[in-house]
C-alpha cells in the first residue's frame, strides 16, 4: 500500500475487562502496520479497555492529518459496528467531517473481507496438517444470538463459500447459544476427522474454556498457560473421532493485511453517504 502520510489509522476493537488476551490481536496488527510506515499515526481503541472509543475522538490532533480511517476489528457487522462505534466516535455515517475539516472514514469490519474465507481454510489446514480433507468435517463455531449479533449470519456465509469448494467431507456452522449447538458436534458431523475453528477475533474465555467444554475437551490445569495450551494438544480423541481444535481466527497475523485492504476498499468504493443505520440517527437526536 502506498504511504498515506496525510492519514491516520484507527483500529476499533472490543477489548475486555477480564481477558488479558482480548486486545492482543488489535495491538499486534497495529504494530505490524505501524512498522510499514504507511500512515502518519496508527492507534487502537476499545469498548471495554483503554483507550476508549471516546478517547479516540481526541487522537490525531495535527493539521497534517487530513483523514482518519476507522477499521472495526470485528468478525461481522452487528451491534458494535452499527450502533456502538458510530455513537461513541460520533460518526455521522461512512464519512464524517470534523469541525477542523478532518475526514473520518468508517470502513467495513475485517470480518466482511473476502479473504476471511482463505484464512479460515488456512487455519483449518494448519491445525490438521496432512489430514485428508475428504475425510474431514469442518466446523466453524460462533457465539450465536445476542444483541443484533450478525456473526452467526457471517459464519453461515463462510460455510456456504467453503462448502461450494467441495474440499471437505462436510462444512457446517455451530454456535454456543443457538442451534445448531456446538455441544451436538458429534451428531452434526460425519467424518472421522473434525476440525473446529472459532469464528472470533480474539482468544478468550470462549475459545479457552467455553467451546472446549462444549466439545468435551478436558482442560489441563487452571493457569493461563494451561488455557492457551488447549491449541497445542490436537488431535483430541473423542467419540472415536480425531478432533482438531484451532485458536480464534482473528489472531492470524494476516488480518493486518485485511485491515489495510479495508482502508483501500473505502477509497475505491463509490460511497453511499447515507447514515449507517437508524440507530446512528437516534443516538444523535
Amino acid at each position: 500500500m502506498p504511504a498515506r502520510l496525510d492519514a491516520a489509522l484507527l483500529i476499533a476493537g472490543h477489548g475486555s475487562t477480564v481477558n488479558p488476551d482480548s486486545s492482543a490481536p488489535s495491538l499486534a496488527q497495529a504494530q505490524a502496520i505501524r512498522e510499514q510506515e504507511i500512515f502518519r499515526e496508527v492507534a487502537c481503541c476499545f469498548w471495554k479497555e483503554e483507550p476508549s472509543f471516546r478517547d479516540a475522538r481526541l487522537f490525531f490532533d495535527g493539521p497534517e492529518i487530513r483523514a482518519v480511517f476507522v477499521v472495526p476489528n470485528f468478525i461481522s457487522e452487528g451491534y458494535f459496528t452499527q450502533t456502538v462505534i458510530p455513537r461513541e466516535l460520533e460518526l455521522a455515517g461512512r464519512l464524517t467531517t470534523r469541525p477542523n475539516g478532518q475526514l473520518w472514514k468508517y470502513c467495513a469490519p475485517v470480518g466482511n473481507h473476502s479473504a476471511v474465507t482463505d484464512l479460515l481454510l488456512q487455519r483449518a489446514r494448519e491445525i490438521a496438517p496432512g489430514v485428508p480433507k475428504s475425510e474431514t468435517s469442518l466446523l466453524i463455531v460462533g457465539h450465536g444470538t445476542s444483541l443484533n449479533d450478525q456473526s452467526a449470519v457471517a459464519a453461515k456465509r463462510e460455510v456456504e463459500k467453503i462448502a461450494a469448494l467441495g474440499r471437505y467431507a462436510s462444512v457446517q456452522s455451530a454456535y454456543m447459544e443457538e442451534p445448531p449447538l456446538i455441544a451436538d458436534w458429534v451428531s452434526l458431523t460425519t467424518a472421522p476427522n473434525v476440525v473446529v475453528v472459532p469464528f472470533f477475533i480474539s482468544d478468550g474465555l470462549h475459545s479457552y474454556e467455553d467451546i472446549p467444554g462444549l466439545l468435551g475437551i478436558e482442560r489441563e490445569g487452571d493457569t493461563a498457560a494451561g488455557a492457551r495450551a488447549i491449541f497445542q494438544r490436537s488431535p483430541h480423541r473423542l467419540h472415536d473421532r480425531n478432533l482438531y481444535y484451532a485458536s480464534a481466527l482473528g489472531t492470524a497475523p494476516e488480518f493486518a493485511r485485511i485491515i489495510l485492504e479495508q482502508v483501500a476498499a473505502f477509497d475505491e468504493a463509490a460511497l453511499d453517504l447515507a447514515p449507517i443505520a437508524e440507530t446512528v440517527i437516534s443516538a444523535h437526536s
Binding site: E49, E50, D55, A56, L58, D61, T83, R87, A283
Partner: peptide, 29 residues
Amino acid sequence: PGRLAALLAWERNRLHPTPLRETLRRQTG
C-alpha cells in the same frame, strides 16, 4: 492509554468533559 491525547486537548482548551448523566443517557443495550 489515551491520557496524553486528553492532556493535549486540555492544554488547547479543547477538552470538553461529558457530564455523567449524559454518558449514562447515551448507553444502549
